[in-house]
Design a protein around this nucleic acid. Structure first.
Lengths: 160, 160
DNA sequence: AAGAAAATAAGTATTATTCTTATTTAGTAA
DNA sequence: TTACTAAATAAGAATAATACTTATTTTCTT
C-alpha cells in the first residue's frame, strides 16, 4: 500500500492527535497511536480489518476488537471519519484537507478529489426545513481508469 | 410510516417496474412485486429488515433472505438504489426523481432534498484522472429539526 | 513508586448478510 | 390448459462484521 512514510504533514497530524488526546482526556496508548498513525499513512480508506492486518506487523498482540473500539472512539471525538459507502464493511480515513470521494463501481476503490467550487457554494434554502447542516460532501460513482484498462486488456486478449 | 398509498406516480413506477422485469427476463413473482411496491411507498429509506417486517403483514410466509436477495437483484439491475451511509445496516430506496440526502447525526433519519443547481453543475476536470463518472450525489450531515425540538424539550424540562 | 481509572486482549455474543437445498412458481411452448 | 423448464422461494445453516464481558495491563496522576 502506497504510504507517505515521513511526510511532514503526517507528522504534524500525529502531533495534533497527541495534543487532542490530552485535551480530550483520552489516554495516549501505544495502540491508539499506532492505529491513528497507520490510518494517517493509508491512502486507501481501509476497513477495520485491513488496518488490523497491517498493524499486526507492528503490534503482534493487537486484537481486532481494539481496532474497532478505537476507531469508534476516534470517530466519536471527530479525530477520524467513517466513510459513506454502500458496502457492508465500514471504511475510515483521517482527513488531511477537505475533499470528496470517487467510488469505483467495479473494484470499490475510493479515490479522493478536490472540488473547491463546491466547497464554496451555498446549500439550497429548502434545507432549513429539514435541519441545520454541519458538513457536506459529494460522492461520485463510475469506473476508475485502472478498471477500464483491465477491461480493455481482457477485450484485447479475446480479440487476438 | 407515512405512505402515499394511491399516488399515481407510484402506480406508474410499478407499471414501469413490471415492464422492466419483462424486458430484463426477471420473473415477476408475487414477492418481487410486493417488495418493490413496499419500497416505492416507503419514504424512510428502510433497511432490508424493516422492509421484511412491513411485508410480513402482506406475505406471512416471506423469508428475510428473499428480501435481501431480491433487493440485491433489484440493485444489480438498477431498479432500486442502495444508499451510502456510515451505518452498518444497508438502506434502500426507489428513486422517483433526482435528489440528495440529509442524514441526521442524532437519529440517523435520512431526508431527501432537491438541489437543481448542483445537478446542473459540471464536475471538476481533475476527475478524468481518476475515471469516468456515471452518477454524482451530495450528502449533508447535521441535526434534523425534529431532533433539535426534542433536545430543547429536554433542556426545558431541566430548566423548570 | 503507588493507585485509580481507563484501555486492552481474549474469548464469547450478537447483528447483518449470504449460502445450501428441497420445494414451488412463472413463463413458455405444445 | 397443461406440462415443462428454468428461475425463485423458504427454511435453516453458515459466514461476516461488529460489539460485549471480564480479567489483566497500562497510562496518567500524585
Amino acid at each position: 500500500m502506497s504510504k507517505k512514510e515521513k511526510d511532514p504533514k503526517i507528522q504534524e497530524k500525529i502531533t495534533e492527535f497527541k495534543n487532542l488526546c490530552n485535551a480530550l482526556g483520552l489516554k495516549l496508548t501505544h495502540q491508539r497511536l499506532e492505529i491513528f498513525s497507520e490510518l494517517c499513512r493509508s491512502v486507501d480508506h481501509p476497513s477495520a480489518e485491513i488496518l488490523y492486518k497491517r498493524l499486526l506487523k507492528r503490534i503482534s498482540t493487537l486484537s481486532l476488537d481494539t481496532v474497532y473500539r478505537t476507531l469508534m472512539t476516534f470517530k466519536e471525538y471527530g479525530l477520524i471519519d467513517k466513510i459513506e459507502t454502500t458496502e457492508n464493511q465500514s471504511r475510515f480515513e483521517v482527513k488531511m484537507s477537505t475533499h470528496h470521494h470517487f467510488i469505483c463501481k467495479n473494484c470499490n476503490k475510493i479515490y479522493d478529489f478536490d472540488w473547491k467550487d463546491f466547497d464554496e457554494s451555498a446549500l439550497p434554502d429548502n434545507l432549513s426545513n429539514i435541519g441545520g447542516v454541519i458538513h457536506k460532501s459529494v460522492i461520485v460513482y463510475g469506473y476508475c481508469n485502472a478498471c477500464d484498462e483491465k477491461k480493455n486488456e481482457k477485450v484485447n486478449k479475446l480479440r487476438f
